[in-house]
Design a protein around this nucleic acid. Structure first.
Length: 416
DNA sequence: GCATGATCATGC
DNA sequence: GCATGATCATGC
């Protein structure tokens, strides 16, 4: 921000509010201040947002306020659909900058703590969609003046511009205060937590210029190939909890030099890391499970929009350990990125369609078994027998999920 | 309290 | 040894 004025002194909180963001846009990114409806970087469909965090007395950090997004146009929004909504097209992908607000500092001296891309996706996206629908339906019924933040979960309709005249709204003569969509403070806390809990794999950009990301990851594992897990821990000068279920995942992250829970690059790319332990014959000890499904959801969905197809389309990172015959010893064998070949995807589609067919015809208790398909099968995935979900026929069945067959995984591991 | 990743148990 | 059913452990 070299061109920015430096003569400003301490600012009152009110003056500062918004200024950091304006200066950042203007002097760092060269964008003139605007409130146009397109994203700031329209070619990339990327919206620039900066937001303050503050330090608490106990040393932890917390968002200072909600993140205010676009102003709600009461009259226009009732004609919109979620997928093509103004809100989503502007805010789906944010370049989010979290800076540390400090009372007695000139705002030009605020520290930037995190810079990250934040995409509305996954389960968050569903919650936010529901919130959006709720707000829109209230506006539709002529109650824009009764909107309040407490009605929704992640996405709020907050007051914005107290000095502004109340706005016209459809289906009611009453004028309603101006409101904007916003991520609630609690949601921003989750964003911050996510950032605090994640760690970059590659910190030196020059490495990435010389080598592909995949190769850089493989290089990190190189020194540990074929090494017994005990020796790996020693080499890393670390002692992990062997009893923890996440032990092998922890160890894998450590081999990559990461002690945090999340790997930033994996998170951004939607890469899911999976641990596989091979028996002496090269077959994984377990099939690979996915989150449980809702019978009714499968009955109503098409394959293309199903959770299972979405999960399979993402990239995987397999970390493979090899056990000896009596499973007393285990060593690190290999790690590789993987995505499902299109032909195998078709097999999973067939299993999914068969599952849907049986659920609809009231046979949710006899879903595709392992012997029925080379790639995938359906099996219980619940806390116990009492942990059930309701099927379209009104009966309760134990929760189940799709699995990838261990023998199929064996082939994939051997081919990589 | 529940979802999720992971693992155990049983019977053929 | 494997398919299938059942459940554990952790974290949010």
């Amino acid at each position: 921000m070299t061109d920015a004025p430096t003569t400003l002194n301490k600012n009152s909180a009110k003056e500062v509010k918004g200024k950091f963001g304006q200066y950042l846009e203007k002097y760092y990114f060269g964008i003139e201040n605007n409130s146009i409806s397109e994203p700031d970087f329209k070619e990339a469909k990327l919206e620039l947002k900066s937001t303050p965090i503050k330090r608490l007395n106990n040393g932890t950090y917390t968002p200072k306020e909600r993140l205010v997004l676009n102003i709600i146009d009461y009259c226009a929004i009732i004609e919109e659909k979620w997928e093509t909504s103004h809100f989503l097209s502007k805010n789906e992908l944010l370049l989010l900058i979290l800076y540390l607000y400090e009372t007695d500092k000139n705002f030009l001296d605020y520290l930037i703590r995190y810079v990250t891309l934040w995409k509305i996706e996954g389960a968050d996206r569903e919650m936010i969609r529901q919130d959006w629908e709720k707000i829109v339906s209230k506006i539709k019924s002529g109650k824009a003046h009764e909107l309040s933040e407490g009605e929704t979960f992640y996405l709020g309709a907050c007051r914005k511009g107290w000095k502004e005249e109340p706005r016209k709204q459809p289906n009611s003569p009453i004028r309603a205060p101006q409101r904007a969509f916003s991520f609630k403070v609690k949601y921003m806390s989750a964003v911050l937590k996510r950032l605090e809990d994640s760690q970059k794999l590659i910190t030196d950009i020059s490495e990435l210029k010389k080598n592909s990301f995949e190769n850089l990851v493989y290089n990190k594992f190189q020194p540990f190939l074929n090494m017994n897990i005990k020796n790996i821990e020693q080499k890393l000068h670390t002692k992990l909890n062997r009893k923890s279920k996440g032990y092998y995942a922890d160890l894998a992250r450590r081999m990559m030099g990461v002690s945090a829970k999340y790997i930033e690059e994996f998170e951004k790319a939607g890469v899911s890391m999976k641990i596989i332990r091979l028996k002496h014959n090269g077959v994984p000890k377990e099939d690979m499970s996915f989150p449980y499904f809702k019978y009714k959801e499968i009955a109503e969905q098409e394959w293309d929009e199903s959770n299972f197809s979405e999960q399979l389309e993402s990239k995987f990172f397999f970390v493979v350990y090899q056990m000896n015959k009596d499973e007393s010893k285990i060593f690190f064998k290999k790690a590789f990125f993987w995505n499902m070949p299109i032909t195998d995807m078709a097999e999973c589609e067939a299993v999914w369609i068969e599952t849907k067919k049986r659920i609809i015809s009231g046979k949710a208790d006899t879903l595709p078994k392992k012997i029925e398909n080379r790639v995938s099968h359906v099996r219980p995935h619940a806390r116990n027998k009492q942990d059930t979900d309701i099927a379209p026929n009104g009966k309760l069945y134990v929760k189940k999920c799709f699995w990838l067959n261990s023998k199929y995984l064996k082939e994939q591991i051997e081919n990589n």
